[in-house]
């Protein structure tokens, strides 16, 4: 019963932090974009605009729920759920820190669960989030939404391939599908044992593929305002729209965590192998926070690609590179 209670508390805390982080991410997006454009960004609601996400949430709740004429109402309602839930589920296998000892109570490792097949779980559930986009686009009964949904699904399928191949390189190096084992293999106190130094090409491809996978700039063809109004969520309003956004930001956070875990040694602290758990957690948050910032940073720096360029990049550049990288990794491992 005590174990159950600990798991329950861990789940609540981690999900609370995830949703809070997603909300803060919307604020950070606006703040950083404003600073990069020599503006202030939201600064009216609360100190430094910190309560802005709350105000946005309240506004979303009071907006009218619209369902377009001729839309399939059930699938229309299902789509935002399918978009948000997989993104939030995947955080369950991310190891945030090592053994937590709180007030003399041993709470186990700081993650909701350490699955043997954590990587597979993440990829499998993460792959489901494409349904939210594609069904939302279809069910809206609008040409812009449909085009946005089709583009997004084509893009996500194309980049998932490279993404999984790159993950395979890391998995092959560690010999485990468990994210905690992958972290521990890098946690030697020496930052040079992080995978980013042994797999630099894989790291670059992975980071770029995460941008495509989360439908972020410069690959945000699902939205693509100038061409498609807002893509798959053109017809959505109120909390349904908010759910799409929650899903998008949760996916970004999970991808940032995953990049940290796979390539930057997860919660490992440089030059301190047996750091206490809160130092590890701080290290993890700093690294993941950098990648979350990178999502925003890149969005407000680069122009959008053209769709054929995106497909060209995915299939003719990243896929062969990822395959070659996997081949070389396998060869090196089997020869060594």
């Amino acid at each position: 019963m005590n174990d159950f209670l600990i798991i329950l508390i861990k789940t609540c805390v981690i999900y609370g932090c995830l949703i809070g982080a997603a909300a803060l991410m919307t604020l950070a997006e606006r703040k950083f974009s404003a600073w990069m454009q020599l503006r202030y960004g939201p600064n009216r609601v609360g100190p430094w605009g910190l309560l802005q996400p709350l105000a946005d949430g309240v506004k979303f709740i009071f907006k009218e729920e619209l369902c377009p004429d001729g839309a399939n109402p059930w699938i229309f309602r299902l789509a935002p759920i399918l978009s948000a839930v997989p993104a939030m589920l995947t955080v369950a296998v991310i190891p945030f820190a090592g053994d937590v000892n709180l007030f003399g109570v041993d709470c186990g490792n700081l993650s909701i669960t350490d699955l043997d097949i954590g990587v597979l779980f993440l990829v499998a559930i993460g792959g489901l989030s494409v349904y939210g986009v594609i069904l939302g686009g279809w069910a809206s009964n609008s040409k812009y939404s449909l085009l946005g949904g089709l583009r997004a699904s084509a893009q996500m399928i194309s980049y998932e391939l490279s993404l999984i191949l790159i993950i395979l390189c890391v998995v092959a190096m560690t010999g485990s599908l468990d994210l905690r084992a992958i972290t521990e293999a890098q946690n030697t106190g020496n930052p040079l044992s992080w995978n980013v130094f042994s797999q630099p090409l894989a790291f670059v491809i992975f980071v770029i593929a995460t941008f495509a996978e989360t439908n972020r700039h410069p690959f945000d063809f699902a939205e693509c305002e100038p061409e498609l109004v807002a893509g798959f969520h053109t017809e959505y309003s109120s909390m349904k729209f908010a759910l799409f956004f929650l899903g998008e930001y949760c996916a970004m956070i999970v991808m940032a965590c995953l990049t940290t875990t796979l390539f930057l040694g997860g919660y490992s602290v440089p030059f301190w192998e047996d750091a206490p758990w809160f130092v590890e957690l701080g290290s993890f948050c700093a690294k993941a926070g950098f990648f979350a910032f990178l999502f925003i940073w890149v969005r407000w720096t680069l122009p959008r690609f053209r769709f054929d360029q995106l497909m060209h990049l995915g299939w003719k550049v990243f896929l062969p590179l990822a395959l070659a990288n996997l081949l070389v990794t396998g060869a090196v491992i089997s020869l060594a």
Binding site: V123, G127, L128, V130, Y131, I134, S153
Partner: peptide, 11 residues
Amino acid sequence: YGGAIMVLFLF
């Protein structure tokens, strides 16, 4: 099945 094949079907 869920992630790859059904997306193709839907497509």
